[in-house]
Write a protein that binds this DNA or RNA. Structure first.
Lengths: 109, 109
DNA sequence: AATATTCATCGTAATAATACGATTATTAAA
DNA sequence: TTTAATAATCGTATTATTACGATGAATATT
């Protein structure tokens, strides 16, 4: 992509965009749903359920960890992934507030 | 990107991902905030406020329109953009439900 | 020690997204 | 009719993302 100019926007806007990215791919939505519902936890179980190669799942997990919305505990040779509650709440609150900014009134179109 | 295999996921998961994409770029967050707060409406005003070229803003607007979260009324030679309330609510409800799936209990990590 | 299991990382191919200048289309205004 | 204003679209360069096979690292098991 052409160089998303993050520095030209507010940190809040950039953080919202980053949190949204966690949900901006069906595979990551699936992963987050599985973790949130505690239907899976171990990386291998996620790989079994998802229609993607192990390396790809691992890549998505890495991205989710980078954003902070999940955490991973190693329990060799397995790794257990879970929702990272503080960031999950940050996302929930952030989007909640964002959606509340729009009040149903006179739109000009 | 490598061919996001949308067909391998549920329509719900794909729709969530699509709605999330509306917020997955700081420029689109900025646009949606401006529209939601009714601080701008006309395309040209958005271009004035945003640190991006007109063509780029137009491209983002097109993507937001494709997702359905905004609509545009032409009032030649201007175009007035507004939040598309039904989809805005769809997004609000969708993410609300998604975040509520996770209940604060015993995480395994 | 040798093997098996699990997951991360590397390398890389393919594709999507971002950005912008230039052009076009449309309509208003002069 | 000519000109100005506005916004969409085109073309294209650049960069990011997605995907997967192969390999590597770490630990448990035999």
């Amino acid at each position: 992509m052409g160089v998303t100019k993050t520095e030209l926007f507010t940190v809040e806007q950039s953080r919202i965009a980053e949190l949204a990215k966690a949900f901006a791919h069906p595979a990551r939505v699936a992963i987050l749903q599985l973790l949130a519902q505690r239907k899976a936890c171990v990386c291998g179980d996620l790989v079994d359920v998802l229609p993607l190669a192990q390396a790809t799942v691992s890549q998505h997990l890495k991205e989710l960890k980078r954003i902070g919305i999940i955490k991973g505990d190693i329990d060799p040779p397995r790794v257990c992934y879970c929702i990272n509650e503080p960031v999950w709440e940050e996302a929930r609150d952030t989007f909640g507030q964002l959606f509340d900014v729009f009040i149903s009134e006179t739109n000009c179109c």
